[in-house]
């Protein structure tokens, strides 16, 4: 079975977010980039399923410029077999989805996995767009994924519960916890990753459907009002009479 895992390159979760002086772009200076944490579930689960099947391949795909290659190599070190980098900045979800759909179709993948969303743009859109472009089902967000032959059983999270869904390949799933325990690279993986194939391809399709005009940071808090622990009940009165939230 051929698995395609789409990964994005995002600022580390501890990053303090700042923007360029015109507020039009994220300020990358001094920021450590990591594999999007949600995508790690997709990657590890694909590797686990391939191992359980005893055959098949896991390909990682990233839409990004050359600076994303260290994280693509990391995905190879974790256990993917080969990689594709679509050589373009990921402009928006529509742009990225077109690249994934094109190269997924070209490679004839059975299962297309990705994280629920990226922790930078939080679009939660690419999965559905790829499924629609390819005319195949999308299960989002998936908390569990098992395969038996060409049939997948997934748990799809809905507000307040979950649905058990069965779909046949090919399909798209966007992954989240508790699907698996994401793996970290071991020394052998890091050594072998250096020589695994990483193909660089050019972008296809139309441009973006949306554009960011400006970024802004959330308004600063006024400062905390402290209530002595002995008078904890006073807090409840303040929440009712001053903050008016209860």
């Amino acid at each position: 079975m051929k698995f395609l895992v789409c990964i994005s390159n995002v600022p580390d979760t501890t990053t303090k977010i700042t923007f360029t002086p015109d507020n039009k772009e994220f300020n990358k200076a001094g920021v450590q980039f990591v594999i999007n944490p949600w995508d790690e579930y997709a990657l590890t689960r694909a590797i686990e399923l391939k191992e359980a099947q005893g055959s098949g391949t896991v390909t990682v795909l990233n839409v990004g410029e050359a600076d994303t290659e260290p994280n693509i190599r990391k995905a190879l070190a974790i256990g993917a077999d080969d990689a594709i980098r679509v050589n373009a900045a990921p402009k928006d979800a529509w742009f990225v989805a077109q690249q994934i759909a094109h190269y997924a179709k070209e490679g004839g993948y059975d299962v297309i996995l990705m994280g629920k969303e990226s922790i930078d743009y939080n679009g939660f859109q690419v999965h559905g767009m790829v499924g629609e472009l390819l005319g195949i089902p999308t299960v989002a967000p998936a908390m569990k994924l098992d395969m038996s032959g060409n049939t997948a059983t997934l748990e799809r999270e809905i507000e307040g519960g979950k649905e058990i869904v069965e779909v046949n390949t090919p399909f798209v799933a966007s992954c989240q916890q508790p699907m698996c325990e994401p793996r970290i690279p071991n020394m052998r993986g890091i050594m072998t990753a250096r020589t695994k194939p990483l193909k660089v391809v050019e972008p296809v399709g139309e441009g973006a459907a949306t554009a960011v005009a400006e970024y802004a940071l959330p308004p600063k808090k006024q400062g905390v009002k402290l209530i002595p622990a002995e008078q904890a009940g006073e807090l409840i009165k303040l929440l009712r009479n001053e903050a008016k939230v209860i």
């Binding site: 939660f124 859109q125 767009m129 629609e132 999308t138 507000e159």
Partner: peptide
């Protein structure tokens, strides 16, 4: 709604209806 349902359906609709989509 920007729910699991809304985002799942909205992203497919954006392609089907050739629409610009903003979530969240």
């Amino acid at each position: 709604a920007n729910s699991n349902i809304g985002a799942s359906v909205g992203s497919r609709l954006a392609v089907r209806l050739k629409a610009s989509l903003a979530t969240n």
